[in-house]
Amino acid sequence: MSMVVIVRHLWKYYIALGSSIAILKDVNLLVKRGEIIGIHGPSGAGKTTLLKILAGLERPDSGEVIVEGYNLNLLDDEGLALLRTSIVSYIPQDYGLIDEFTVYENIEIPLLLIGLPERERRNSIYNILDYMGLRDKEKIKVKYLSGGEKQRVSIARSLVITPSLLLADEPTANLDWDNAKKVLELFNKINKDFKTTIIIVSHDTRVLEFVTRRFVLYDGILKEVEI
């Protein structure tokens, strides 16, 4: 089975009050194609930073990060942007949607960036809206949707480019458990239907019931735990 993510000896520092603090300490991670990885840890443990590095939104201070064979250290900003329109999709905790845009318009953004013609864009968007059960919401502005619906729109926007790696940052943090469960079941369905590799980070241990491999990130140190 091929590796989608290879992280070796990753270190990341932040400067706080003039001194440098290590947020990620010698992180090593191998993710195989088709896996659902769950990373659990308390707030401030470095979960979001790790995910942002994998998405090419932040750069590591040292160490190697390889996603789908691309060494992210060797890519410039344009290369990392290209990676996010083709291979990696990142779902932020706050959904990362434009409130004043409709569901359709939000999902359309990545397709505009890759320059897809209008007819193909429309087909792709309707396919994904049908898959996510959001067809009846296409003309509704995102600001009028519930948290669960916003999360589904965010996932739909991520899926519309059919990425091989999906990164979800605290996908259940703003949801009640019923809605959270639906979102996690949706990730499992996506994993089966699209063969998408998924990495979920969460401070909620219940999320770990829905993954194939579990890790704990505590104080910048990543450790695998047995299921």
């Binding site: 942007a81 953004i109 990545p110 960036l113």
Partner: peptide
């Protein structure tokens, strides 16, 4: 707030610096 949200979303989904 709106302009930051707009730019952040475009950046998140892979808009290049020029865009």
């Amino acid at each position: 707030r709106d302009v930051i949200q707009f730019i952040s979303v475009f950046h998140l989904v892979g808009a290049r610096r020029k865009i």
